[in-house]
């Protein structure tokens, strides 16, 4: 990163960054226009109509409906434009567009960021990404609320205990960028910082290959270690339902109704199995709350997600 002593605009390194900057400049012009207008009017009137003697007489005007309507409506219509554009750009930060979107899993805890790549590498307070490839972040906190903030990408999202949050971004420029925690999280909040390295695709492939076991493999190991595999038999004849092809499918519940088996549901079912029991099964599964870490959960979920592809069922 170039070390500018008096930077004026932050680095711009994602597809959404120029859009946000453009909107920012538009609103900045709007803001400067109105601020200068008000300053100018106030100073001009104050000089022009300055009281010169005791006999000065003002001109009494009580109001004007036309003016009131004008200065209510015109700025409002202008900012409605900002609303429309701003909302559209905001939605893009949550929309998966590319087919080859890669996933990154982030766990925030006091006071570090733990990053897992599905292919295996795990990092702390550092994150390596390939350039020009869309990335979906799935994030959760182990303790308090944090916020994953990369100024060069113009993006942040709160990382909350007990539920997954996510956003999508495509880096566009190779380089090293700041990673901050933006939600106050305790003593070392300002130490919960790190670096994002955006690399050429080929460099990234090399870097990933240097990692160890994939998340799926780790998840599979945990699946055995916690005894999940004794009940969740692949043929569906175990005490728990088969998990093959379960990810993102609709599951009928014992109590009626159904639920989509997304990451949040899988996580809830591991930690709080009695909450939403699948039809045809008993609420016999023990809770794993406090026994498995958030990182481990992500690995087990990655394993469950992988089950549909490999078995082809």
């Amino acid at each position: 990163m170039q070390h500018n002593t008096m930077p004026f605009f932050p680095d711009s390194a994602s597809t959404i960054a120029p859009e946000i900057d453009g909107l920012m400049i538009a609103e900045l012009l709007f803001s400067v226009f109105f601020s200068v207008l008000i300053f100018a009017i106030v100073v001009y009137f104050a000089l022009k109509y300055k009281r010169k003697s005791e006999d000065d007489r003002p001109v009494h005007i009580h109001g004007s409906l036309v003016l009131e309507i004008a200065w209510s409506l015109i700025p409002f219509i202008m900012i409605l434009g900002f609303f429309v554009v701003g909302t559209r750009v905001f939605f893009r930060a949550y929309t998966v567009e590319a087919a080859n979107t890669m996933e990154i899993f982030v766990t925030g805890k006091q006071w570090m960021w733990k990053i897992q790549h599905p292919e295996g590498p795990r990092e702390i307070n550092e994150m390596h990404l390939p350039v020009n490839r869309q990335v979906k972040f799935t994030m959760i906190a182990e303790d308090v609320i944090h916020s994953y903030f990369i100024p060069a990408f113009r993006l942040k999202k709160d990382v909350i205990p007990g539920r997954y949050t996510s956003f999508v971004v495509t880096p566009t420029k190779v380089g090293k960028y700041h990673l901050f925690c933006a939600e106050y999280c305790g003593t070392q909040h300002s130490g919960m910082v790190g670096s994002v390295y955006v690399m050429e695709e080929s460099d990234y492939e090399k870097w990933v290959a240097g990692g160890d076991e994939s998340m799926t493999a780790r998840g599979e190991a945990l699946f055995g270690q916690y005894g999940c595999s004794t009940c969740h038999l692949p043929n569906g004849k175990g005490r728990g339902p088969s998990l093959i092809g379960v990810y993102n499918s609709m599951q009928k519940l014992q109590t009626g109704g159904s639920v989509k088996a997304d990451e949040s549901y899988l996580r809830e079912s591991i930690l709080n199995p009695r909450a939403k029991v699948v039809e045809g099964f008993q609420a016999v599964m023990p809770t794993f709350q406090g026994q498995i870490s958030e990182e481990g959960l992500l690995q087990v979920i990655a394993y469950i997600k992988s089950l549909e592809k490999e078995e082809g069922q």
Binding site: I16, E19, I20, L23, M24, E27, L28, F30, S31, F34, S35, I79, F82, F83, V85, G86, T87, R88, V89, F90, A93, S147, P151, R154, L155, K156, A182
Partner: peptide, 16 residues
């Protein structure tokens, strides 16, 4: 006017 900027959802992504 800076409040208007912050009320724009896309800008809040960055400036929040």
């Amino acid at each position: 006017v800076t409040g208007v900027m912050l009320a724009t959802m896309a800008l809040d992504l960055h400036m929040h």
